[in-house]
Computed example of a mutant assay.
Amino acid sequence: MPSPATCRLASPDEQIAAQHAIINRFETALWDGGFNASMLQSYQSAWRRLETLIAARGDDRRHRFVLVIPVADSPAQLRRCLASLLELCRLYGYGGMKDGHFRKVSVILADDTQARSHRRKPGHRPRVRRPGFGHRLLRPGRAA
């Protein structure tokens, strides 16, 4: 018959502090003697675990990030930029997701596109085809 547990469960704050310590050790080991690619997935997993602990605590007071991306006549580069940003958010999980969008990361596109073939009709809002970011589209000379 197993014996009952004799140690207490760490508080949410203690678990978060311990996870920060784990991440710090990963960061040291990840770059010790040059970049160690074999540790990258574990490092990213440690960050996602931290996000889970913070969400479970229920009082995430960290900063929100708003990224402003100026764009003009470069739809392929914009797609790659947004895909890369979305992948980083998924790998590290900063702020978690709500209703299919990352809660702590938003994107504003400042569009100065001149080519008619790249423009959308007035009032058009870009579609988000998969879970991602809150977003706004700004164009010069128009109200936000």
Rank of each mutant, 00 (worst) to 15 (best):
R130E: 14
K98F: 05
F133D: 00
A144R: 04
Q77V: 05
K104R: 14
Q77C: 13
V68I: 14
S117N: 13
R25A: 10
L82N: 02
L85H: 04
L85P: 01
I16H: 11
M97A: 03
R103Q: 13
I16V: 08
D99M: 07
E27L: 11
A115Q: 12
G134Q: 01
F133R: 00
R130V: 12
G93E: 04
M39S: 13
G95I: 03
A55I: 05
A56F: 11
L78C: 15
C89K: 00
A110K: 01
L137G: 02
L138Q: 05
Q41I: 02
M39F: 15
H63L: 14
R61V: 09
A10H: 07
K104L: 07
C7Y: 11
P122F: 03
R61Q: 15
T6S: 15
D32H: 13
G96A: 01
R103L: 11
V66S: 04
G58H: 09
Q41L: 11
S45Y: 08
P12G: 01
R103C: 04
D111E: 07
S106R: 00
T28I: 12
G93Y: 01
R90P: 02
C89W: 00
F35W: 15
G100R: 07
Q15A: 07
R139W: 10
L67I: 08
G96K: 04
V66N: 07
S38R: 06
S74C: 08
A21R: 15
